[in-house]
Design a protein around this nucleic acid. Structure first.
Length: 427
RNA sequence: GGAGGGAUGGCAGAGCGGCCGAAUGCGAGGCUCUUGAAAAGCCUUGGGAGUGCAAGCUCCCCGUGGGUUCAAAUCCCACUCCCUCCGCCA
C-alpha cells in the first residue's frame, strides 16, 4: 500500500500519479477524507484515554492513602470517562478498518519513468532479440497443442478428465522437459540466489501483502475448510518470508529464488488465448526475487531482467522485452518489463516473464523493514521480482521452434543434462 | 486427533492487578583510561500513531483477538504458533 502521508502532504500530486493508473480522483479523495476523520477522532480518543489513566492512578494513590471515599468518587468519575472512551473507540476502530480497506485497494504509484498509456497496445517494445520473421520453415508452423498430441507428450483431454479444462497433463518426455526447464532456471541463478522451497498454500495476510487481496480474490484458489490460498506465484510466499522483521542493511539485498507450482483461476480471462498451454490453471515456475534498499532497487531490476533474458537466450528462443505502460501496470507494480518469446507454431508473442519493481508497496503491507547501517530510523525495504522461467509457454515455444520436418523435436543443448542426455523428443 | 507446558525488548530472562514500555544479564554503539589493544569504568540502546518549526507532549504495542476492572504484561475466554508425550501416517 502507499504511504498514507502522501494523502495529507501531497494529495494533488498523488491523485495525478494514480490517475496515470486509471484511478479516479474520487477514490483517492475518499481515502484522504477517511484518514482526516480518523486522525481527528484518534486525538480525541488519546485525550480521553490520558484522562482515564490519570484518574486511575489517582484512585490507586487515594486507596494507598487510606482515603476510601475519595477513591470511590474518583473511580466513579473515571468510569464515566471510560464509557465515553469506549464509544469513541469503537467508532475509531470502524473508521480505521474502512480506511485500511480503502488503502489496500489503492494501487501503487507508477514510477515516473513508466511510459504513459491506457492499455496493452501502449506498451513499449524495448528490444527484440533473435527474431527473424522469415527464418521459419513450414514444419515449425504447427501449434504446440498439435505437436504435443502428435508426440504423446501433452494430453489435454486426460488433464481435463482429472481436473477440468486448463489443467494440462504432460507425459513422458513432455513431463521431463517441464522439469528440465525448472532445473535449468534454478541452476543458472544459484550463483547469487538462495533457493527456497516455500509452502504453496498460504494464509490470507500473505496474499494480502503482495496486493492480490482484497481486490483480486476471484483470481485465486481458496481452500475454505482451512482458510488457505493456493499461491499464484512463488512471489507470494517469498515476499512474506521476512514479514514483520527488521533486517540489517548489511544483509541487503536479499536474493531469493523458488520453484513452486502456481495456481490461477483466470476468472476474468474466459475464452481468451486459452488453447493448449497458453493459459492454464496450474503450472510450474521458478521465480527470483530481491528485497533491498531504495538505492539498490534500480540495479537489481536490471539484474533480474538480465537473468530472465539470459535463460531464454540460452534456450535459443527469440524474444522481445516490453515495458509496461502505466495503464497496464499491475496493482502493486511501480515499473515492469515483460519478456515475450516468439512461438512460431501459433505465431504469437507469449509473455513468459514479468520483471517488476514494487517500490515499498508490498514491504509496507508485509512490514519488511531494515535498520540503516549508520543508525537512524528504520526504513521500509523495496521488493522486486521476476519469473526466471515459467514452464508452459516456454515449453510451447520450444516444441514449436525446434520441431523438425519429420515431426520430432530437438532438445536445446543446454537441456541435455536435464533430459537424461536425450537430444530428441519423438514418438 | 488426544494430554500437558510455553509465547515478554537484538538474545537470555524477571515481573505482587496500580509507581511496568517493563528488573537483570549478555550483545551492540559512544565516551574515559591506554602508544595500541584488552580489562575496567561511565553513558546510550525497541517499534508505531498523533501533534508541533523544534525541544517536547499525548497515545498504542509484553503472540493475536475479545472480556472482567476505576485501572491488565499480570485475571478470564477464544484463536495462532512453538515444545514434550501418546495416537495416526507419507
Amino acid at each position: 500500500m502507499i504511504d498514507v502521508r502522501l494523502l495529507r502532504v501531497d494529495l494533488e500530486a498523488t491523485k495525478a500519479a494514480l490517475a496515470r493508473k486509471k484511478v479516479s480522483g474520487e477514490e483517492v479523495d475518499r481515502a484522504a477524507s477517511l484518514d482526516a476523520r480518523r486522525r481527528q477522532l484518534a486525538s480525541q480518543v488519546d485525550e480521553l484515554r490520558a484522562q482515564v489513566k490519570a484518574l486511575s492512578r489517582q484512585v490507586g494513590e487515594a486507596m494507598r492513602a487510606g482515603n476510601a471515599p475519595g477513591a470511590r468518587a474518583l473511580s466513579e468519575e473515571s468510569k464515566r470517562a471510560g464509557a465515553e472512551l469506549a464509544a469513541l473507540e469503537s467508532q475509531g476502530a470502524a473508521l480505521e478498518a474502512e480506511l485500511r480497506d480503502a488503502l489496500l485497494r489503492l494501487p501503487n504509484l507508477p514510477a515516473p519513468e513508466a511510459p504513459d498509456g491506457v492499455s496493452p497496445e501502449d506498451n513499449v517494445v524495448v528490444r527484440t532479440v533473435g527474431y527473424d520473421p522469415d527464418g521459419y520453415q513450414p514444419h515449425q508452423r504447427v501449434p504446440h497443442w498439435d505437436v504435443g498430441a502428435e508426440l504423446g507428450i501433452l494430453d489435454l483431454g486426460r488433464g481435463a478428465k482429472i481436473a477440468g479444462s486448463m489443467f494440462p497433463l504432460l507425459r513422458g518426455q513432455g513431463a521431463t522437459l517441464a522439469r528440465a526447464l525448472c532445473q535449468l532456471a534454478l541452476d543458472r541463478n544459484a550463483d547469487a540466489y538462495t533457493e527456497i522451497r516455500p509452502p504453496s498454500l498460504v494464509r490470507t495476510p500473505v496474499l494480502e501483502a503482495v496486493g492480490q487481496l482484497p481486490k483480486f480474490a476471484d483470481d485465486a484458489y481458496h481452500i475454505e475448510r482451512d482458510d488457505l490460498w493456493a499461491v499464484p506465484t512463488a512471489e507470494v510466499p517469498l515476499t512474506s518470508m521476512h514479514a514483520g522483521e527488521i533486517l540489517s542493511e548489511g544483509d541487503l539485498p536479499l536474493r531469493l529464488m523458488a520453484y513452486t507450482p502456481c495456481y490461477r483461476r483466470e476468472a476474468g480471462a474466459a475464452g481468451r488465448d486459452t488453447r493448449g498451454l497458453l493459459r492454464v490453471h496450474e503450472f510450474d515456475k521458478v521465480e527470483i526475487l530481491a528485497v533491498c534498499t531504495r538505492a539498490q532497487a534500480q540495479a537489481l531490476h536490471e539484474e533480474i531482467l538480465g537473468r530472465a533474458e539470459a535463460v531464454i537466450s540460452e534456450l535459443g528462443l527469440p524474444y522481445r522485452v516490453v515495458e509496461i505502460c502505466t495503464g497496464d501496470l499491475g496493482q502493486s507494480h511501480a515499473r515492469s518489463f515483460d519478456i515475450e518469446v516468439y512461438a512460431p507454431g501459433c505465431d504469437m508473442w507469449l509473455e513468459v516473464s514479468s520483471v517488476s519493481w514494487f517500490s515499498d508497496y508490498q514491504a509496507r503491507r508485509a512490514s519488511v523493514r531494515y535498520r540503516p547501517a549508520g543508525g537512524g530510523v528504520v526504513q521500509l525495504c523495496d521488493t522486486l521480482n521476476g519469473s526466471a522461467l515459467a514452464v508452459p509457454r516456454v515449453w510451447a515455444a520450444i516444441v514449436e521452434t525446434y520441431r523438425q520436418a519429420d515431426g520430432s523435436v530437438q532438445v536445446p543443448t543446454c537441456l541435455y543434462p536435464y533430459m537424461r542426455g536425450e537430444k530428441l523428443i519423438r514418438r
